[in-house]
Write a protein that binds this DNA or RNA. Sequence first.
DNA 1: TTCTCATCTGAGTAATTATTAAAATGAGAA
DNA 2: TTCTCATTTTAATAATTACTCAGATGAGAA
Lengths: 114, 114
Amino acid sequence: MNPTPNFTKVESQLRGQGDSVQRFQLLAETFKALGDPTRVQIVWALTHGELCVTDIANLLSVSASAISHHLRTLRNLRLVKSRRDHRTLFYSLDDEHIEHLLEEGMEHVEDLIL
Amino acid sequence: MNPTPNFTKVESQLRGQGDSVQRFQLLAETFKALGDPTRVQIVWALTHGELCVTDIANLLSVSASAISHHLRTLRNLRLVKSRRDHRTLFYSLDDEHIEHLLEEGMEHVEDLIL
DNA sequence: TTCTCATCTGAGTAATTATTAAAATGAGAA
DNA sequence: TTCTCATTTTAATAATTACTCAGATGAGAA
């Protein structure tokens, strides 16, 4: 098949990106980290303020071990950060992009439901 | 452990959401759909204009069959839509939220790399 | 020190998913 | 009709992943 009008246009843009492979890989991993019901609820909960592991576990009715596993994947992609207070680790969102991501995603979902 | 200050606050907000389970489920599925290197590149390519399956396959050096599979998951979540022109199906982004999602995600990734 | 407890880690299993290959549509051309 | 070809589908395999359980840190209290 002959290339469609947009093909050559997009192709040149893709070639011009250089080392964009790493960028798309990281972008996909970021979305994948949010692509789990438990993790996206963890992030949503943290938009209301910092919480410790036990709190999140009680909130979502999931074991603290499972929450800890999820928090590691979120931490690895710098979606959340933590601070220690005595024996307790308080988790919070790492930057303001995360909350915007959730909001933007929610708007799409609201359109889906209607 | 006693509930931390934010726990009761977030808990009441969670209870007040009602049937939010479905919302979070769909939100997670949406992010998961974008959480794949090939699919996120498909969506990125479509931000530059509509493309057919063969074009996308050539662009990303992936088989047309694999692209078709990915397009179905994107279509199921209404991230992309299609129109037919003779034998060719042209795919494009379903609404403007999708492009914003990608931009917001990219900004986070740029911070990651630096 | 010993005890408590919030959190993390490692292994194991079940479930999900991406990819490929081959066959099947399905629409237009000959 | 028959042929072509863009796209979809089905089945199979390989890889990834979420969860649980058991044990290990690690920091503060006693």
